[in-house]
Design a protein around this nucleic acid. Structure first.
Lengths: 247, 247
DNA sequence: ACATTGAGTTTCATAATATGAAACGCAGTT
DNA sequence: AACTGCGTTTCATATTATGAAACTCAATGT
């Protein structure tokens, strides 16, 4: 039942701020009666708010409050924020902190570029692991069962250069592990390029990824080098703050 | 089971960022074995993070991300922020947006005073309804069963002027409803004064309270008038933004 | 007025899961 | 070695969840 609560919560996002019973049931591939009861129980307990006119559900303000408690009690974002801001200063582009959540990458901190033309990172947005630099960064060091689950079937194409062949992705992950960073270009969206590097904690576990996302028109060859250098340096600095010591 | 998830989540707060099995079991008045399983399930499903060294649980970053989605999809805080900031400008004091969550008032938005001596509002903090201006504001228009539940027994004393007699509180709530705002002084904390007014949505339902909290040393008689005027005006403006139309 | 559609809710027999007490495992202390 | 305290696992029993089908209600079309 705990799993079902989280399954429902994860249906909501910036693109889908509210939901009805029928749509939720389709998304979850569950009978309408079951999902109706789930949503009702979650509304009753305060996870969801319900518009009395439309009957649609949305995440509740109580959940927002709990989220703030979570942020305040977690050292990762508090420590990351100034480093991400510095990264925006040096690259001129939007920087993100991304974590692995199930089989998706989730933006948990976003510092936006000051340029009028920028990639707009969205807090809370869930991104496919195979088509994003951050996703590859996280997947490269994810538990073997997570990697196996992603690599056991062809992957959805999202843009012209999405890696859809599991073998190609596996080789890409080998490159990520060898270089210590990941890149993506026209894989999630046609005009989006990104560089990402893993963040390690005091045990050496990869717990997040630092990413810079760039409109692809600005990514000249020498620009790639600058961004890669700055992202990997930021990830390294953040790792140090979290107690990571290189061997 | 949904209820249990929320019960556990609500144990965490700024004063209690992490918890072990035994302490959680005591707080919940449940057998250790049950709570151990709850926490393990919630960790597995992503609600809680667990420090591998200490074994203690804390709210997860996934929950923080969900909280951000909740905030972004809710019109209340997006609309309230600029008005709360203006309120800080006019009063010089910390302003808060507070919602009713079960039998407690919860800070869901805080804009801090720029003075070095200020009341420090804490996001996510849960406050007793009977001892806070915001709590009284929310309680005065809460469903009858909520009011009955709070007013059916003596209330805990927290400071020298806490209202502990249910009848006295009921009369105070009548005053709140008559004046359209609530005040509190030395009721939650000895040196804390506050003014609060209800926020209504398009249906006329009270959905939140706007509050200004002030170190009591700054609350001279004419100061009360200024703060009351600004708080009620802000609550009224926010209500209008939410579609409220006075009869 | 009646029938249809579609959203969400409720009922009921059955299946699945949760529960608390007790035992267990482990690390630290005496 | 024994004890303490934390967290986990086992097991008999209790409790709750589930899916299919029926139901309710509002809106729409004939």
């Amino acid at each position: 039942m705990v799993g079902q609560v989280m399954q429902v919560l994860r249906l909501f996002g910036p693109a889908r701020p509210e939901l009805g019973v029928t749509e939720a049931a389709e998304l979850l591939d569950r009978p309408k009666s079951t999902v109706s009861r789930w949503l009702a129980a979650m509304h009753r307990e305060g996870f969801l708010a319900r518009d009395p006119d439309s009957g649609l559900f949305r995440l509740s303000l109580s959940l927002a409050a709990l989220g703030e408690v979570a942020r305040a009690s977690t050292s990762l974002q508090r420590v990351a924020r100034p480093l991400l801001e510095a990264l925006v200063d040096t690259t001129g582009e939007t920087s993100n902190l991304v974590v692995l959540d199930g089989d998706a990458a989730v933006n948990v901190e976003v510092v936006r570029s000051r340029r009028t033309v920028q990639h707009v990172g969205v807090l809370g947005r869930r991104l496919p692991l195979h088509a994003t630099a951050a996703g590859k960064s996280l997947l490269a060091w994810a538990p073997p069962e997570t990697q196996a689950r992603i690599l056991c079937h062809p992957l959805p194409r999202l843009a012209s250069r999405t890696l859809v062949d599991p073998e190609a992705l596996a080789m890409e992950l080998d490159q990520v592990r060898a270089h210590g960073y990941a890149t993506a270009a026209s894989e999630l969206e046609e005009e989006l390029a990104a560089v990402s590097a893993p963040v390690r904690d005091h045990r050496g576990e990869v717990v997040a990824a630092v990413t810079t996302s760039v409109p692809i028109s600005r990514m000249t060859p020498d620009r790639w080098d600058v961004v890669i250098h700055e992202v990997t340096r930021t990830a390294h600095d953040l790792s140090s703050e979290l107690g990571f010591r290189a061997p």
